[in-house]
Amino acid sequence: MTSPAISTHALRKDYGRHIALHGLDLRVPRGSVYGLIGPNGAGKTTTLRMLLDIIRPTSGEITVLGENPRAGGAALRRRIGYVPGELRWGTRLRGEALLRHLAEISGPVRAGAIHELAERLDLDLTRPVRMLSKGNRQKLGLVQALMHEPDLLVLDEPTSGLDPLVQREFLALIREARERGQTVLLSSHVLSEIQQAADDVAVLAAGRVVAEGPVADLRLASVRRIHAMLAGSTADEVRSALQSTPGVESLEVADAPSGGLVRVSATSRGDIDPVLRVLTASTVRELTVEEPDLEESVLGLYEAEPQAPRRRGRP
């Protein structure tokens, strides 16, 4: 059985009396794109920094590419590409000079790879790094993470400051990395990125995982909006049937202006099949189902998660 690219067990991080992470268990399969999402303060950045041995856990176990990050040292770090949540480039070097210097540290970089990535991300490598805008500094960070095609990419809010066209190109690069067998851990609060890129996702709130699994499964747990025009049944019959249908949370049923039709507007949480079975008992003339986005799915999880407890003292 192939070991995961990332594994944590009972991972905990305390900052004084504040508990940033509460016994985090994660398993990221090799060759996958794994999304880590949550509101500010959920523990996303803390988790990523511990995986890279930038900060140390209070307790728990971490394995990255089969090694303990603390023991793996420089050899392990060369197998990882990292984009931090906040990039600070204070150097006077120009973009290309900085990237070539970093390439000497990170390991072999395929000839032409730097310029190919810069062109795809619309990055001017001739400008001094300290003169770059936030968006261009972010592009530079992406190039340095991607250029040596590492086994693992750890990306913390990677599209911050990027325009929509560059964001789309970034997502294409992530898909290509997965096709090459690379693993991507993508932390973001831009939920559309997770929807488009990730295979699986963990939702963090107050230092705990409140949901995890395939992105499609999270969408199943959310609310869909359903609009239908039915024939062959009365409004009272349809209303009565839908009122007793599991998952229906709001409902409007009325005779349509055009004679003989019943207009239905409803919202349904969870499995939509029971609602569809009721609707298809009539003749369906029109049917629209508005799929939820991930934001609707996870907002309820955030709100449902109780506030993380604070410890009164050290154990």
Rank of each mutant, 00 (worst) to 15 (best):
I6G: 01
D14H: 14
R17F: 05
H18A: 11
I19D: 02
R27H: 12
G35S: 00
P39H: 07
P39D: 06
M50H: 06
D53H: 12
P57R: 03
G60R: 11
G81Y: 06
G81P: 00
W89A: 05
T91V: 10
R94S: 03
V109M: 01
I114T: 00
R130C: 00
Q138E: 10
K139D: 03
H148E: 09
D151V: 02
S160P: 02
L162Q: 10
L162W: 04
V166D: 04
V166R: 08
R168H: 13
L171T: 03
T183G: 02
L186E: 08
Q195K: 12
A197K: 06
L204K: 06
A205K: 09
R208T: 11
A211K: 00
A211V: 11
A216W: 06
A216K: 13
D217I: 01
L218W: 03
L220A: 11
L220Y: 09
R225L: 10
M229H: 12
M229I: 14
G232T: 10
R239E: 15
T245A: 06
P246F: 12
V248G: 03
E249I: 04
G259A: 14
S265N: 12
D271G: 03
P274H: 07
R285K: 13
E286V: 05
T288C: 03
D293A: 00
E303W: 10
A304Q: 10
G313C: 03
P315R: 14
